[in-house]
């Protein structure tokens, strides 16, 4: 069975490369659209990692929600919005923005590193619980019911907010 083992290992590193390549494309792109596609490639890698870790359901949800919805909505926004100024895109970003971006990146990575270092990791064999749909559904609706419901309220608030903004945009000028 070693052939499949090598295949799986190869796929794992393939996904890692996918994530980094996507992130790199996303950062280096001069056009917003290419940035979004970089994000999509990166998320594809993340979905692959979920699959590799034994949860095909989460991998498929990653594809469905993050690529199928989030990336499409961002791209849709770019298309519908005003065309960006070509010259402004070529200009290097101002210093303040750079500092802010670097600060945000460092803070996020510090937070992630802190979590990674402070989590007691179980070895793969001792891992408890399964990631089947049944188990996930039960834990979402029993153990994590409150956060699950809070997320839906957050989404509802976001939809109502978007509707209000859209209404003001359409009728605001006339009044």
């Amino acid at each position: 069975m070693s052939f499949y083992r090598y295949l799986a290992e190869g796929l794992f590193f393939g996904f890692i490369v996918c994530i980094f390549a996507g992130a790199f494309i996303s950062l280096r792109a001069r056009q917003l659209m290419n940035s979004v596609l970089g994000l999509a490639i990166s998320l594809l890698g993340v979905a692959g990692l979920f699959y590799h870790l034994g949860s095909p359901f989460l991998a498929l949800m990653e594809l469905l929600i993050n690529i199928g919805v989030v990336c499409v909505v961002i791209a849709f926004g770019i298309m519908v919005g005003p065309k960006p100024d070509q010259a402004a895109e070529k200009r290097p970003p101002p210093k303040r923005n750079r500092m802010l971006a670097a600060g945000a990146c460092l803070a996020a990575s510090a937070l992630l590193l802190w979590t990674v270092l402070n989590t007691p990791w179980n070895p793969a064999i001792a891992r408890i619980g399964d990631f089947t749909i049944r188990h996930l559904g039960e834990s979402l609706l029993h153990q994590f019911c409150l956060p699950f419901e809070l997320i839906s309220i957050l989404l509802l608030v976001a939809i109502i907010g978007a509707l209000i903004i859209a209404r003001i945009g359409r009728y605001g000028a006339r009044e």
């Binding site: 498929l60 594809l63 469905l64 199928g68 919805v69 499409v72 791209a75």
Partner: peptide, 10 residues
């Protein structure tokens, strides 16, 4: 199927 179909839109 539904997840893979999402790529079509992209």
């Amino acid at each position: 199927i539904i997840a893979v179909m999402a790529f079509n839109m992209v």
